[in-house]
Amino acid sequence: MMAEGFLYFLAIAALLVYASFIIRTAVHLASWLKGPSPEKPGHGQSPGGGNKNIRAAALDVIFLRRLFRVNRVLWVGEWVFHVSFLLVLIRHLRYFLTPVPQFVWQMQSAGRAAGYVLPFSLLYIIIIKAAANRGRQMFAYNYFLLAGFFLISSLGALMTLYFYPDVVAVKEFMMFSLDPRALFSGALPESPLAGMSGEVPFLAHFLLALTILFYLPTHIFAAPFTIYKARRRDESMKGNFYPSP
């Protein structure tokens, strides 16, 4: 009974975190779409757009080129982290989608390899940041995120290597936590998590992931747009101040 109660608690907590994530994102999105300030002066002239800028900004995002420009040592770790994190996320889609798309199956090996790389990349970033300027660069929130991701990814790697969870039970639980109707009807998954060999690491992994999702930084969505804006600004500078005679 205790395991069932805990399972319900976990599924409801997950649902609340998903909901808060969606609401938070929607609220931020609404603020970004607010448009110019009601006091129109002071925001300068809008630089031009263009496909060239979109392509360049996409490369800026994919290769973290702005970071490359200012800190190449850190860039190595950050780029490896972002790529491996993306691969791991894709690998995890198999727990959330039914049927699982073909590309997710095709990415399983790469995702598995990325899962081993991920904690090392995070450890590298933490060391580099802690070493730079005697720790002056580290902000508590940044440290919290890095430490959180490090623990999640380390547990993930351990589950791949040593503590094998019952993937069927995990998938059933994930689908259950995503379905409010099933959740409130009280229909528990047929393969309960309790009793599986990797239960504790999985629960820790999942709870940490929920915590990080709750505190997920808004920059994940906002940064690509500001990078695009910066690219447009850089490109338009010459157009603004070197007008054709």
């Binding site: 970004w32 607010k34 902000f139 929130y141 940044n142 808004t218 920059h219 969505f221």
Partner: peptide, 12 residues
């Protein structure tokens, strides 16, 4: 507002 949200607090 988007820019405020975009800050990663990276400290660079």
């Amino acid at each position: 507002l988007l820019e405020l949200d975009a800050c990663t607090q990276c400290g660079e």
